[in-house]
Design a protein around this nucleic acid. Sequence first.
DNA 1: CTGCATCCAGCTTGATACTG
DNA 2: CAGTATCAAGCTGGATGCAG
Lengths: 132, 132
Amino acid sequence: MDTTQWPLTYRRDCPSRTVVEVLADKWTLYVLAALRRQEGPMRFNELRRALDGITQKMLTRTLRALERDGLVSRTVYPTVPPRVEYALTGLGAEAGKLTTAIAEWSAAHVPEILATRAEFDARAAAAPRPVT
Amino acid sequence: MDTTQWPLTYRRDCPSRTVVEVLADKWTLYVLAALRRQEGPMRFNELRRALDGITQKMLTRTLRALERDGLVSRTVYPTVPPRVEYALTGLGAEAGKLTTAIAEWSAAHVPEILATRAEFDARAAAAPRPVT
DNA sequence: CTGCATCCAGCTTGATACTG
DNA sequence: CAGTATCAAGCTGGATGCAG
């Protein structure tokens, strides 16, 4: 398979894929959106409460990945009990703008999409795969 | 847990989450980007060739999900051999604009992010979790 | 409070073979 | 060409317990 003519993005070994794979994640999207909305640092449990349904494990993992890529900063205050704050970096704020756009677009088109989806499912239930 | 004060997006049962979960997917992102780039319909195997590394199964599944939500249209030409074309709908074009933005942003910041990532990994290897 | 470690069920994915 | 079917494997994510 000759891939030399393609845009880098579509190539299996393009490094940008590793970045996309971090961003193209449900929890990443919501974490960035929440931090962006807050317009300031948030504590671990504050984020957890904000993102209904996320487990401690997934929040930890997601934040770690974002920290690793420099999208989120992690600041530890050596107090008792410990206080850890997460904030968007400049890079994270940019990425957050993009993920927020997706969240907002999704929310805006929910009725439309849900209707289409229901119709599709109804057709699928009626006929196994109507051609055209 | 009282979630009544939160933006809908962050609630576990918000329907927009089901939409986000379709978009926040690696292959969805690339499929939309490829169709958008093409500026016209693409055949199944054409898409497959364009997206290095995708399996037939995942491409089928991804296209089906996009079709279900009305982001992509599927047209079957009853010829032999069959010819099936996929194209963005108006809605899909909008979504594609957003996912393309993510792909491009990722590509643009790869050097920066890869460097940050390497540094993070180096630190992690050196010290188990340096506070601050 | 902020996590890490572990166990484990189940969904996702890849590989492969087959069909209209 | 454009899929469907199947099976195994691997990763994801949830639950729980514990620690600094």
